[in-house]
Amino acid sequence: MQSTDTEFLIPTSVGEALQAIAKEDAIFLGGGTSTALLYKTRLIEPSRVVWLGNVNELKGIRISASEVRIGAMTSVAEIAADSEIARLLPGLSSAAGVIGNARVRAMATLGGALAHADPRQDIPPALIAVDAKASIRSLSSTREVSLAEFYAGFLETVLDPDELVTEVVIPITSNRRSAYLRYTPTSEGDYPTVGVGSSLTFADDGKTVSAAKIILCGVGAVPIIAAQAAQALIGTTADESVLRNAAALVRGAIDPQDDERGTADYKTEMSEVFTYRCLRLCLGN
């Protein structure tokens, strides 16, 4: 490549990684799919790259009775292939299975996907819908941030330059169902015109919705949390007219732009259609 003065460090622990990032213009590298593209087109010129591929404590999926923990360096393909994830978090499983192509899924990591913060990404809506939190560490602090509050703007997160997402923690709630649905009308593997992640949690009667989440990607600078639309589901039994009404309410939450994947008007219409369909998917149909 054009430059040979970028340092390339390969730490084997989170501690080492956090030490290594303490340099101006240093960046973490996960699977590298986005970073390599930015670097080869000379859009970024990091002074140091801290590759996390050999930090084993950042890898793997751990499931207990109350939560699912996924290490930041777990690949998207591993998430898509995990049968327990498919059972407990069908929305996340399906989002992980549709991203890009098989190579992107094999290379891309969960942490990298979150940190890149492209608002067309499929995984964030699926995760926010199930109340996922990011565990974040720096040399001086440890914090947990709800993914609902993780995105600060287009390609921007709340992470400080010295902070690292180490894992994502997803609480397991009984009676919660989740789904993810994307709309790519032109070509398989394209970025979505719109993607919708949703979850419905039911009260003990098994019918009344006690909590609901609707999150959309591709229709704003960040993943859009359609709180009002979700609110309209709570306390109902999620019948047809309620779903239709909730889906219509996402129109007020989104901020789509015209691009080659659709005009803003079309994305607005499709946001409603696919929210309705995603909610139906949550209900098992």
Binding site: F8, I10, L29, G31, G32, T33, T35, A36, L37, Y39, K40, V49, W51, G53, N54, S75, A77, N101, A102, R103, V104, A106, M107
Partner: peptide
């Protein structure tokens, strides 16, 4: 996909793969 290589059994796009990550 013309540049596909196999890394630890998985398909990888070598055109967006920094060689350091093959360590």
């Amino acid at each position: 996909g013309a540049c596909t290589i196999m890394v630890n059994g998985s398909p990888v796009s070598s055109c967006i793969c920094l060689v350091g990550t093959l360590s």
